[in-house]
Write a protein that binds this DNA or RNA. Structure first.
Lengths: 186, 186
DNA sequence: AAGAACGTACAGATAAAACTGTACAAAGCA
DNA sequence: TGCTTTGTACAGTTTTATCTGTACGTTCTT
């Protein structure tokens, strides 16, 4: 629906401005691993005056309902949009999370955290395996040296991921805003 | 070039371990907006004992030289690998940046910073335009209200991006390591 | 200066993703 | 309970990204 409530010629300028901002938001959304069209969907919702249904989005974006469904699901998973219930309607309504600081921290909590944990797990497993191999091939100097070199690399990788894990903790706890306040120090 | 120096049966286990870690690294590399195969290339380089040439990578990865070239260029742009000069060889040699903390901050400096700056510029431009429209359509209450609402949203977006800009500053300056030390506090 | 080796641009082929329409399950309404 | 509406699964199509081979410019060697 968007601007339907002001169907006059002035709206053209507002529409154009919104479109430009939406384009920009959508283009830079690949940082979050989101496709451009889902980024557009997000941008459109950003300017929406009230929560929207899938059908409304579909007609606004001129896209199929299925695409809207999958796009919204992606945005929901990243907590970039929220589901809103409105009594009397059995349609699902969605609106963007307007607190972008929250969106930022949620993004890292959802996407990066998962990756960090998976990596640490695999690395630990590999280090254990490596310890066994180090014992087994203690008599083969060359192989032993190669194993130790790899093991050191894996240990350093684990340290890094643990740091990343703690960094994400500070995002999630809001501690990061002590170091970098939302309001710039004048 | 990998394990060729130990062509015995024990190497199987080491190879397998490396492969698993490489797979994991490659899979989670999409956080950096990098394709899976470029992620594999990175993982392979991670375990390489010395800097490698494009041809060596090509034979190790069983991929075309062109793909190696474009993959390496991507990794170079993100400063995930470095070009190494070796006197006497006119081939380009590459090795991964083993300081992953550096890689992390470089990533934000390269990718996010660009995005942040582009967004702020577009938003400022739109806010200016909006001020003109607010004057022009002061007589149209509904449109005026809509404009003000949008303008507020844009202002909040600018604030957020400025915060992000300052956050990336703390990454780049290393100040972030004061809040989140590399060595975990025991 | 001529030749050889190296890296990349380009165009075509292959693989992956995004999108659509239909069909169907779930949930509210009569 | 039957009827309608809403959201999603699935298969097929379209679009986009990735990969390959050839051709060519550049640089180093002789």
């Amino acid at each position: 629906m968007g601007l339907d409530q002001f169907s006059e010629e002035h709206d053209e300028a507002l529409h154009k401005m919104r479109k430009r901002v939406i384009e920009t938001i959508g283009r830079n959304m690949d940082l979050y691993g989101i496709s451009q069209s889902t980024g557009h969907l997000y941008g459109m919702l950003f300017f929406a005056d009230q929560p929207m249904t899938l059908d409304q989005m579909g007609s606004e974006m001129k896209m199929s309902k299925t695409s809207m469904s999958t796009g919204i699901r992606t945005l929901l998973d990243l907590k970039m949009v929220n589901k809103v219930w409105e009594k009397g309607s059995r349609k699902d309504l969605y609106e963007v999370e307007y607190d972008w600081y929250q969106t930022f921290t949620d993004f890292f909590d959802v996407k990066w955290r998962k990756s960090v944990e998976a990596n640490i797990m695999i690395l630990r497993k590999s280090i254990d395996e490596m310890d066994r191999m180090l014992e087994e091939y203690a008599g083969n100097p060359e192989l032993f040296a190669a194993l130790q070199k790899d093991k050191m690399k894996l240990h350093e990788a684990v340290s890094y991921y643990q740091w990343l894990d703690r960094l994400i903790d500070t995002f999630e706890s809001g501690e990061i805003f002590k170091l970098v306040p939302k309001e710039p120090p004048m």
